[in-house]
Each structure stands twice: as C-alpha cells, then as structure tokens.
C-alpha cells in the first residue's frame, strides 16, 4: 500500500485494538501504560527492556490475532505476510513507532538492531517504512540484511516497501539476488518493477548461466528481473 494512503494514527489504533482482542484486558492495559510512560519519560534502557519482554507480557509467544484481524490490519497498511503476525510482534511494532524525535529514533532503533534477537530485528525492519520516510536509517537496514537468518532477511526483503524506496541501485540489486539465492519469491519484493535495471538483468542472466552449467534448475520467477536480452 502506498505510504500516502497509510494513516499511521488509524493503524496504531487498529493494532492496539487487535492486541486487546487477542491478548485480553490486563496485558493490553499494561502495554498502554508503558507506551504512555515512554512518551512522557523517554529512557533508552527502559524502552529496550520493554521491547524485549513485551512479547511475553502479551501471553504465549505463539499467540496470534484472528485471520479477520490480520486482514483488517493489512487493509490499514501493515503489509506483513500472514505468518509474521504474532501479538508480541504487533506490540513491539507499537513500541518502535513511538519515539517521536527522529534523532532519538535512530539511536534507539540502531541500538536495538545491534542487540536484538531475530524476532526483534524482524519487527524493527518491518517498522522502517512507518518510522523513516527519508531513508536516513538505510545503512542500518542494509547491514541487518547481511544476515543469513532467513526470517530476518525476509523482513527487509519481502512485503516491505522500504528497500525499493531507499536503497541505491547496487544495494537493491544485491538484495534481489540474495532473495533469489535464499529461494524467496521475487513477487514478494514490493516495488521491484520500478527498480528493475540493466545491471540486475545481467546478474540474473549470469546466474541463470551458472545454474545451467551446474545442471540445476532456474527459479521460475527469475524472469521478473530479466530484460529484452532474456535469461
């Protein structure tokens, strides 16, 4: 969904309501109080601690919103794949969208990407299109994407418009080819059509040749990034 259409206020209210429905009243009240506290008294360590423990505070780690609620949030602009919706992840998303000052946000998100586990890093990366409209955190996203942990890489590469908006051509091409190598679907890379380029088409062609030489199959959707020269 284009950024201009996403109403962040409506989305955060929707997320808070979905958390209340799924987790119940007590965790929901706790979260609301913590969010209010962080607004009033920003403190990096307290915020980081809540960001880590909020998943457990919301109940069982596997707790998920209903499929109707997932659809509702997707319509409101949360372009996550279904499997990424856990109540704990939504609560973390609320905590990331909270820091109001851009400078503070960069420091907190940067630190948390550095110290986060895979689930935390995934939420942070999925939050970037909502909190960073100018692309100032792009270097953090590129660095986090250097992992081989599939969930974390998919969080920046798939169902996330941030890379297509802010990555340089070289960064974008590396992200796309890594997605190919990891077996992710190119259909899931948002904004890819607009970022196609001759260099990426050449890389796809060379990759196809390498696969043919090795007697291996060529991913079906590789044609998405080919040009008139084909594969």
């Amino acid at each position: 969904m284009p950024e201009s259409v996403t109403n962040l206020t409506a989305l955060t209210a929707g997320v808070a309501e979905v958390i209340r429905q799924a987790a119940g009243e007590v965790p929901s009240v706790w979260l609301t109080e913590r969010l209010e506290l962080h607004r009033r008294q920003p403190d990096a360590r307290a915020w980081a601690r809540d960001f880590s423990r909020v998943s457990r505070r919301m109940g069982r780690r596997a707790l998920r919103p209903s499929s109707a609620d997932v659809s509702r949030l997707q319509l409101l602009g949360l372009a996550w794949p279904d499997a990424s919706f856990a109540v704990g992840a939504l609560a973390r998303w609320l905590l990331v969208t909270l820091p109001a000052e851009t400078a503070q946000r960069r420091v907190w998100i940067g630190a948390q990407l550095n110290y986060g586990d895979a689930d935390e890093q995934s939420v942070l990366l999925r939050s970037l299109p909502f909190v960073d409209h100018s692309g100032e955190l792009v270097d953090l996203a590129v660095e986090a994407g250097r992992t081989n942990a599939l969930d974390v890489f998919a969080a920046i590469a798939c169902h996330n418009p941030y890379a297509a908006r802010h990555y340089t051509e070289a960064q974008m091409n590396q992200l796309v080819m890594k997605a190919v190598f990891l077996g992710l679907s190119l259909q899931d890379i948002l904004g890819l059509q607009a970022r196609k380029n001759a260099e990426l088409a050449r890389m796809a062609r060379d990759f196809a040749a390498e696969r043919r030489s090795a007697g291996r199959s060529i991913p079906e959707d590789l044609g998405v990034i080919a040009d008139a020269g084909g594969l």
Binding site: R45, R49, S52, Y115, E120
Partner: peptide
Amino acid sequence: MHRYLEKDG
C-alpha cells in the same frame, strides 16, 4: 548483560 537478559530465548 542488561542488553541480553530480557530476551525471549
């Protein structure tokens, strides 16, 4: 250690 002791795992 404060950075890690609160993690889920």
